[in-house]
Every structure is written in C-alpha cells, then in structure tokens.
Design a binder for these strands. Sequence first.
DNA 1: GAGTGGTCTAGACCACTTG
DNA 2: AAGTGGTCTAGACCACTCT
Lengths: 229, 229
Amino acid sequence: MMTGWEDVRAEVLRRIRARDWAPGAVIPGEETLAVEFGVARATVNRALRDLAEAGLLERRRKAGTRVALLPVRRATLDIPVIRQEVEARGESYGHRVLARRMEAVPLAVAVRMGVAAGTALLFLETLHLAGGRPFAHEVRWLNPVVVPGGVIPDFDRVSANEWLVQNIAYTTGDIAFSAEAASGEEAAALGLCAGDPVFVTERMTWAAEAPITFVRLLHGPGYRLRTML
Amino acid sequence: MMTGWEDVRAEVLRRIRARDWAPGAVIPGEETLAVEFGVARATVNRALRDLAEAGLLERRRKAGTRVALLPVRRATLDIPVIRQEVEARGESYGHRVLARRMEAVPLAVAVRMGVAAGTALLFLETLHLAGGRPFAHEVRWLNPVVVPGGVIPDFDRVSANEWLVQNIAYTTGDIAFSAEAASGEEAAALGLCAGDPVFVTERMTWAAEAPITFVRLLHGPGYRLRTML
DNA sequence: GAGTGGTCTAGACCACTTG
DNA sequence: AAGTGGTCTAGACCACTCT
C-alpha cells in the first residue's frame, strides 16, 4: 500500500535504482504520480522534494523533475561544541586559556574577516584537553563589538567555543577543512613534533554583516571527522 | 506580513536570537502560533520543522518544541565526482589508472568492508589530474559481485569514481576525513615528499547489506574542503 | 488519558520557466 | 501562453510520549 510520503519516496527511489527512470530523464509530474499512487499531490510533493534535497532529483518549474545525471552526494556534518565532542568519546573535558589579549590582526585574518588591516581584535589561544591530554589547539580572533553588553568573560570556566554558541545565537558563516604541517609552536602545544600532519578546521562566522569570530582549530594525528552519507 | 512559511521561520528565528524564547524553553504550540501569525498550522509546521532540521529547535510529540540548549551546527557537504570538482576550478580533468587487479584485501580493509580476511576483491589505484598535475591519489577496493552483468570496465575512459556513481545508484555509507603523513609511494604519486601532510578522505559504501567499495582518497597540500554553515 | 507534533487530503492560487 | 512545481488552507486523523 502507498499510504505515506515515505512509501512514495521508497517507490520512486526503487524506480530510479531499477533504471525504470533513466538518469537525465524527466519523470511524470506530481499530479500524474498522485493519481497512480492514490495519494494527494502534496504527498508526492513531499517525497520528491526530499529526494531532490538528497541530490537524486533535479526539479524545475515548468521543466519538470529529472533524475540527476551525476548525483552529488550530500553529507550532513554535525559540528558540536568541543566539550560535547570529547565527552561523547567518554573522556573528561578540560581547557586552558593560553592567551587572551587585544591584538592587531594579521593581514590574512583581516582579509578573511573583512576588517581593516591592523584592526585590534580580541586574540584568544586555547588548548582543549581530553582525559588530560591535548585534544585540539584553538586560535581565535573575536570582534568585541558584537558582545552583548560589551562584557567579555575570561573564558576560564566556559570556553570561548561554548560561550559563543550560547550567547551569539545562530550566525551564518563558512567552514573549511584541510591538512597542514604543524608549526613548532603548534606542535609544542599539542605534544607533537614540528612538521607532523594536523587536521585544520577554519571557521568564519558572521551576524548580519558584522564579523563575529574567526577560528583556526588544530587536531593532532588520529583525529577523524566522520559522518554518514 | 506573515504570508509564507519562510516568513514564519524568520520571525521564529528572530525571537530565538532576541532571547524572547530562551534556550531550553518550550515555545508555543503550532496551533497557537498559527493563530498568532494568521496562517494555517501546516505553514507553521513547515517553518518549525525546517528550524529543527537545522538544529535550532528540538521537537517531541506531547513534550512540545524547545529551543536547543547547545545548538549543534549542521553543515551540508556536497561531495561531487572528482571530475566535476576539478572542472569547477576551471582546470582540465584527467586520470590515469595505475593498477587494476584482483587482490586479497588487507585486514584493515576487510574489517571495514565486513568481508572475510583474505577475500579477493578488485584493487584499483588511480591518479586524478587537474591541468595535467596530480590532484588526488585514489586507492579503491571494489566488490565485483555487485556489478550489474558482472562486466567491469577498465576505467580508462571513465574513472571508477564516476562509473560507480552512474551505475550503482544511491548507496548508503559513511565518510571520514583526516590528516596523515604521506608514505613514500603516496608522496611519489602526488609529486610530494614523504611525510608531507595529506588530506585523507575514506569512504565506505553499501547497497542493501552488500559492501560495494572502499575508497581512500589523498589530496596534497593546498586542498581545502569547504562549505557554508 | 490527553496533549502535541506528524501527516494526509482536496482544492486553490501563485511563481517560475520554457517553448 | 501554458505547464509544472511551490505553497497555502482548513479540516481531519494518527502516533507518540509525558503525566
């Protein structure tokens, strides 16, 4: 029986897999499928929309719905607060603030944050610990302008990472992952040797045109960012 | 005016940001909001569902809808076929098959694929080129059982990456990213020095309980995996 | 048991895009 | 100009889960 939108999605998926509907081909319209499956058009719409979000269908008004020629795989990454990430591994979390001062941003950071070169922002350096051992090294520039009330905590109790998530709700931004060789200082902080490969996460966040913070996070060897497809 | 579900979403988002609805607090029910906003309940439902998918709200029947205490940031990664990735950079794509033979899988791979140690699978080694220069090094084990008709191409024209996407439609799987030091062979293939940091992508895909393929993909320095938040 | 979100329906209008 | 997906509505029933 075809009773719900998930049944419709399953059947459509089956036809795609079975090549009943070939890659690149236009599939029947929503109304047609609704009649065939004996459900309301809205139900078909929900199913097709879901498959389109997953990258298997391409939908355009008037042009209709096509089976994607080269399905782009879409994976959803959950990016938790570091404390949660550590505790999810069953280890105790801790962090140490290594530096906290106003400082002129380097040019590379100024460009990425969209502020004038030489602007003074709050510079923070934090070491995140898992089970007492170094887990991640964080370097952050924070725009003090965006802090509500202008009161910036010292981040000894709550890390900047967690404090920002709780206090500067829902920002936009981008994130990039890469592999780099650890510099001498970075290696020392993480207990590695200079030149060891580190997993780098760089995140820039904005709130309504105003830059909030730029973070560079380093994880040592053994760190894996995982997700389901 | 509150005419569409995106308007409803925007207003709800505003209230979360403004702390009108505090983190952890239960917000009004769908029916209540529908009346307040002057829309149908389905419209409110669509808006709240979207925010829940984004990680900002937590919804449970009977319990109601709460503002997430520690919003988990969710990012969507698009994982295109390598050819598309290269061409999107405006470079010409090419690939060379370095090895293609049946081979007993190493233990580590057997475990991840869920096959008996020593099983013979198709082993493929491919170098992907961008503008004639090495872009990524791919090592893959492919389960020949899943190939329709049992006919496996030589992958000289179409890379295994692209062929699988087009011929083994929609599989489940997982993906993991990490940073490692290049081995001597890997470095040679990519034109690097042994020990240089490489960005590693490991992907395992399944189709209905049967393992399809395990891939290990290496990108040299300079490669960045990017997405919006 | 009862309250809340999850979903379905039938019909309608709208927006976009293509021919 | 017309066809297709996008969305809205009002009402209904269902499923889950908290008390």
